[in-house]
Nucleic acid binder design. Structure first.
Lengths: 190, 190, 190, 190
DNA sequence: GATGAATGAGCCTTCATTCAT
DNA sequence: GATGAATGAAGGCTCATTCAT
């Protein structure tokens, strides 16, 4: 018997990301994705249960990768501010080097498809971040306020500034990112 | 000539908002909107050039209303911090009282349709806000940093916290809003 | 506004019958039917909810017509045998003059689609026949046995003999039909 | 060479019958049948040329079995009526003990697939029955009328009464079957 | 012999839009 | 102005069959 062709599988994933970025979620039909990937529409259903599965799986796997990249090289012994700054820098590195991955997740997160992914399914990949924040609160370094609020001032601004569509002026040079991080830190620190 | 029926026109707008909120952008077809509004699909094309026109027009007019509400009762003589706080409070008032309007704009802003609306077309309704910020920078009250960054820490967090889908824990009580605003202010102030 | 085009509706019905007879239920796709009728596939959905509705409605309306034709010119005062014979003759007249209608109902009745039609929905058009049979039983002219059995010997043989596919030898001349009816009568009479 | 696996072959046949009975001819796809049988779709094509071959072969082999069962224990010396009655009883025994086989053949016989099976291919298994009938005619016991007509009154009613879908009231108890057979006999005897 | 991967063609249905009244 | 009818194109998905191992 023939074995699953990982090259083909990867072509499907890349085609999905590329097409969604180019023409949006709504217009990205299964047959267009298949054509872009150079396979038959039917082939797609060997790797995924249906269109929803294709899109959510792609999203989750990118988020998993993001989690790994953002939280790498973290050292529990270093100051909390340094950890949080490192994560920011990692994020901007990631979005600079994988703009198409990042753009896909942003589009996905704001599409109705995102309701189909359990929040915990994604949040688990960022769990170490929560632990840092909690530690910061315990050590009276970070404001004792709900996680939703802290996220709105620590994580979301970074996402927004990374998003070329939303912020066309902001260029993510090390200086700019550092300057912007200062605002995040001023917001959340005690 | 007969005059267009404003009752009918309004029914179309309300149906659009209601349906998009209920079943999402992708599933909201013209005929479903027409049925929800109690008119013929063809009637819709009397009021709008096409589906794109319907959606973008609806979006822009809500944004115009939002601008009016957010920037009301502002007094150039009052402290900048007070003005910015007032705008926050106005935003949470608006989203509390018009959740369906707000939800629609959030969905729209993250759909591919949003690319069809010129940024300036919407930004002009929030122009007074820029002036306040500029004044704050000139008076050395607000950090001298690009507007994209300031918006990422002043405006976006408020939008995120208003969005029930994104922030399920955060309840917009006056105390919570005030507490969250403090983070915004800490972020942008000098 | 445009009014429903009955010519077009009839074209759809005739195309359905013709195609199902020619290539069978399984192969008769909506688009083939539409093409045969000279309309767009979408047009078909103006007249029918879906494919199932198209097929069942067509079946039921033919059965209604059959009921009318088979039971016409019946006279309660005439002998029961004459009434039952008249119905047989009417049936063979009908199948001779409307072979495509008859063939369609036979195919339908033995397809899984037939489960979608309530038995009573069709049986009501043949109700006078039951009444004759019941009268015959009461008058001790017809055997007192369950209706299923009587139908199996009175009605089904006529259907089978009418069916060109099942009975290729039998020709429905008046003499042949009369001769065959004698068997039916011998079967059910007391 | 390797020998075909009869266990596997039988699994395919049983899966075909089971699935066609459960979901109908139209919905019974090759891959569903393969899955039900626990084999690969490709395996199926080792045993059968194509789907048509699978279905027709299954049909013919059941019919062959039916012929054997119906015509067993027949004695040319016994009265013709007894022989014909015995066949009836055998048929009801068969359908009672093998309802799924019977149901399959009934579905098949009324599907377009049945046209693909030559009539003689099946009829040969019931040839002894014809001989009995011919003998009956020669002995002036059975009406001298075409075989199509005799079959319509002798064989078809039994099939109809056996078919649970068509006759929901009739229960095939020995008494009921005997009573019904009397109608068949009355119909065809001289 | 046996298999899961792979496919182009086709399935039913809905789409955004225009037509004819 | 307003409408329901009408449509070609496209939607997601499954089909019977063959390929490659």
């Amino acid at each position: 018997m023939r074995t699953k062709d990982e090259v083909k599988h990867d072509a499907i994933i890349q085609a999905t990301i590329k097409l969604v970025n180019k023409i949006g979620f709504v217009s990205s039909s299964v047959s267009k994705i298949a054509k872009e990937a150079g396979v038959s529409p039917a082939t797609l259903y060997i790797y995924y249960k249906n269109k929803e599965d294709l899109l959510t799986s792609t999203y989750v796997s990118i988020k998993q990768l993001m989690g790994k990249v953002l939280l790498k090289e973290l050292d529990d012994s270093q100051p909390i501010r340094d950890s949080l700054k490192k994560i920011w820098l990692n994020l901007f590195d990631f979005t600079r080097e994988n703009p198409e991955y990042f753009q896909f997740t942003e589009q996905f997160a704001n599409s109705p498809y995102s309701d189909l992914v359990k929040r915990t399914e994604v949040e688990k990949y960022f769990e170490p971040l929560s632990r840092i924040v909690i530690r910061g609160i315990e050590q009276k370094i970070i404001k004792d306020i709900s996680f939703d609020v802290l996220r709105a001032f620590y994580f979301h601004p970074a996402m927004v500034l990374s998003n070329a569509r939303l912020c066309q002026e902001f260029k993510s040079t090390p200086e700019n990112v550092e300057a912007a991080f200062n605002l995040a830190w001023d917001a959340i620190r005690l």
